[in-house]
Design a binder for these strands. Sequence first.
DNA 1: TGAATAGTGTCTTTGAGACAATATTGC
DNA 2: GCAATATTGTCTCAAAGACACTATTCA
Lengths: 233, 233
Amino acid sequence: MNASKNNKTENAALLICTVDVVLLTLREGELQVLLVKREREPFANALALPGGYVHPQDDQSCLDAAQRVLQSKTGLQSPYLEQLGSFSGPGRDPRGWSISVAYFALVPPEALPSPQAGCEWRAVEGLPTLPFDHASVLASAVERVRSKSQYSSLPAHFCSEPFTLPQLHAVYAAVMEESINAVSCRRKMEELDFLEAIEGAKSSGGAHRPAQLYRLKEAYRLRLKLAERGLNA
Amino acid sequence: MNASKNNKTENAALLICTVDVVLLTLREGELQVLLVKREREPFANALALPGGYVHPQDDQSCLDAAQRVLQSKTGLQSPYLEQLGSFSGPGRDPRGWSISVAYFALVPPEALPSPQAGCEWRAVEGLPTLPFDHASVLASAVERVRSKSQYSSLPAHFCSEPFTLPQLHAVYAAVMEESINAVSCRRKMEELDFLEAIEGAKSSGGAHRPAQLYRLKEAYRLRLKLAERGLNA
DNA sequence: TGAATAGTGTCTTTGAGACAATATTGC
DNA sequence: GCAATATTGTCTCAAAGACACTATTCA
């Protein structure tokens, strides 16, 4: 307790406050994360999660900062975005004691309007070493997404609208890396009641029965629908 | 983006970084939270969540800071403590743009060794207005605890060891504010497998059959055991 | 022995998985 | 009609709730 008399400036000046964003998508049947080549030190030229300082002058919250960071790297306006948690300590950033508020975002693979140069999608498994504690942040995000996918509409944010139930079913299975009973999945989607059928719209193309097209109900475009029981277990 | 060239000092000096702790217990059959009378401005003399500045000199992380704050207000050494999330923005603290990393802690009601003067247990429902955004922080903590209680060993941290299954059953019911099937509860505790029976130890006192005494398995004293399915729904 | 609560066995209900049956499309 | 996939109906199985029965203690 040798610092109990620190005043605001003394405390604040020693702290680096940033946001990091784990932007996930589903490509090639696997979870992929957007990494950005760092332009500046520390870790210049390394691939890292997109992140940046909080700008108290511009940002109304850390969520705002995360949206600003995401927008500047990818052009995304309003993907699904949720706070993951905060990571802090003296060792995670070589510049000194830092705190990062981490967010994760989900987008369909075709949703990137204008990614900045230096952005790359990478499979979340088998990545090379990431700078800072980004490996922990990413692992935490993946775990959260898999966990929430068990009992919520979260994976629907990997689908671009409109989509069919078979597509959604495949997305759930890919996210959770296990096969899912199609009938149960259908039943669960109906129970969750976060989809609305698009009247008269059917998928087309294959030499087979077309599937009904759906979109997210307005209320769940930026939020989730949570079930009380999971999909399978 | 008029602040894109801010350097570390310029950004950091404008930020207030604190931790807040939602310390919960179960007393009188309801969730209660520990509030502390603030000694200093802002909101001097108001009841608020215990909190304080992060001390980069002393703290190895925000979790450390939360433990330090909790220790200094209550003397608690190592209760169950989990990060709730971060709350930030220009308006939540009258001193300026601030970020608070919030934690919640669970203790049995008799666990406070030496609470500082000015600490009070209050029911989480029907509180008067709290300073800062502490009402949101508290609401968020209560929601998290109720939600996790559905499928984890979390409520066991409201029981002082050793405890009996009927006591634990009552605690689950009180936390979730609904009656719980005793047989299902028993089955779930067994399935979760986070308890160990204390050989030969039985509760005593009533004019009735005594109950087996249990304690948490070592591995779950500071962590949780999560189930795949919930207790009831 | 009786009251009171602990703990167990079993029937019923509900929801998930398996699988079969039907529907709709392009060829 | 045939192949292929969508969608629905039904059977089966596992887990949760209800409830009754047994167990153990003290008065």
